[in-house]
């Protein structure tokens, strides 16, 4: 028996919005420690890794490890039927071929349930090596989304250059060149407005704008985003999900042809 309950459906809606542009379907691996999802996008350029800890749920029970393959378009249709403040419960029997998603209004006067067919997905799990990153940048998630959106107008690629002075995002194309520099913030009143750079050595890497823009669909989940970079390895873009877990996106760099 698997049962996981969250106080607000809005969290699950935001999580789905953060992955459904990259993935058509995905396997949710459930165990007593929580829910994990790892999947590559269709073109095998990026990898999405979602971790939801069992202690972040209002109620969590998972007697046997369970892998639930879900069509994310179908899940989105079901979640559209929930009000943001509704409680949401996911339930499945051991070895079931369906999952039940139930919404309850705060006053318990409306209860709806949706049974969704599960899929058998033949998904490859990748081993992600431990990396000592050369640069780790923490910045407001909204600012990162704005930069990715703005620079995508000028080129398919963005160059991220990180030094101890700051981080520079550049794009160059037919229109010309765009550069956005962010300096590390001195003192800020609000922690969520800070730009913090931890640098071991400077790094310059090139990434495809369309994936970065897809990752920024996670912006509503978190006030801050963390970018971890190292020469010739994938960029890690991480959004914390408060008291519940995190979503990490790994993006392979563009390399010299």
């Amino acid at each position: 028996m698997f049962e996981a309950r969250l106080g607000q459906a809005t969290i699950l809606k935001k999580i789905l919005d953060a992955i459904k542009d990259l993935l058509n379907e995905a396997t949710f691996d459930c165990s007593d420690s929580g829910i994990q999802l790892q999947a590559m996008d269709n073109s095998h350029v990026s990898l999405v890794s979602l971790t939801l800890r069992s202690d972040g749920f209002d109620k969590f029970r998972c007697d046997r490890n369970l892998s639930m393959g879900m069509n994310l378009g179908s899940m989105a249709k079901i979640l559209k039927c929930a009000n943001n403040e509704d409680n949401v419960t996911m339930k499945a029997q051991d070895n079931a071929d369906t999952v039940t998603i139930m919404f309850e209004s705060a006053n318990q006067e409306k209860v709806s349930d949706y049974e969704m067919k599960l899929m058998n997905l033949d998904q490859e799990h990748l081993g992600i090596p431990e990396t000592d990153f050369s640069c780790v940048v923490r910045m407001p998630a909204m600012e990162f989304a704005r930069i990715c959106r703005d620079l995508a107008q000028f080129s398919e690629s963005v160059v991220i250059c990180c030094t101890k002075e700051g981080v520079k995002f550049s794009a160059s194309g037919d229109v010309g060149t765009a550069n956005i520099k962010l300096a590390q913030t001195g003192s800020v009143d609000k922690e969520e407005e800070a730009v913090i750079i931890e640098m071991q050595e400077p790094v310059t890497l090139t990434f495809a704008c369309r994936y970065l823009n897809a990752f920024t669909k996670a912006t509503p989940l978190s006030t801050q985003v963390q970018l971890s970079m190292c020469a010739d390895v994938p960029l890690v873009v991480e959004y914390a999900i408060k008291d519940l877990g995190h979503i990490r996106y790994y993006l392979a760099p563009k390399i010299e042809d």
């Binding site: 990748l126 690629s157 994938p234 042809d257």
Partner: peptide, 14 residues
């Protein structure tokens, strides 16, 4: 000129 690398160039199958 740059070309897009694949994620499996970096991460191995488990």
């Amino acid at each position: 000129k740059t070309k897009q690398a694949g994620i499996m160039n970096f991460f191995s199958k488990k």
